[in-house]
Amino acid sequence: MKETLNLDLVNQLIPQLVNLAKEHWTSCDWQYGPPVEIFADTGYICIRYEKGNCWHYDLKNNLWF
């Protein structure tokens, strides 16, 4: 279930999120397109990509799943 994002907090975390997402994209043969939506789910910031795939980004531990 999508959660409401605290926009002030997201604004502070954007540089870290961008860096982690770029690390994700370059770690494989990325075929999912550009980001189209950012949302929160189960305490994580998530990115939905053009092909419909979503990943959760754990900014505390620099992981994605």
Rank of each mutant, 00 (worst) to 15 (best):
residue 60 K to E: 11
residue 47 I to D: 02
residue 56 H to K: 15
residue 49 Y to N: 04
residue 50 E to Q: 15
residue 17 L to D: 09
residue 6 N to I: 08
residue 7 L to Q: 12
residue 5 L to Q: 05
residue 27 S to F: 06
residue 15 P to D: 10
residue 52 G to C: 04
residue 7 L to M: 12
residue 2 K to N: 06
residue 37 E to P: 01
residue 41 D to E: 15
residue 22 K to P: 04
residue 48 R to T: 15
residue 19 N to I: 11
residue 17 L to T: 04
residue 20 L to N: 03
residue 24 H to V: 14
residue 47 I to R: 00
residue 42 T to I: 10
residue 50 E to Y: 08
residue 22 K to V: 12
residue 26 T to M: 14
residue 39 F to C: 05
residue 33 G to D: 07
residue 8 D to A: 09
residue 14 I to A: 07
residue 34 P to L: 08
residue 43 G to R: 05
residue 58 D to W: 00
residue 48 R to Y: 00
residue 45 I to F: 06
residue 7 L to I: 07
residue 18 V to D: 06
residue 44 Y to A: 03
residue 29 D to N: 12
residue 65 F to R: 11
residue 22 K to D: 11
residue 2 K to D: 09
residue 14 I to L: 10
residue 62 N to F: 01
residue 41 D to Y: 05
residue 15 P to G: 02
residue 64 W to E: 04
residue 43 G to I: 09
residue 59 L to S: 04
residue 49 Y to V: 02
residue 52 G to V: 05
residue 38 I to Q: 03
residue 38 I to Y: 04
residue 46 C to L: 02
residue 35 P to I: 11
residue 48 R to F: 01
residue 26 T to Y: 08
residue 8 D to N: 13
residue 44 Y to E: 03
residue 61 N to Y: 06
residue 60 K to D: 11
residue 54 C to S: 09
residue 16 Q to M: 10
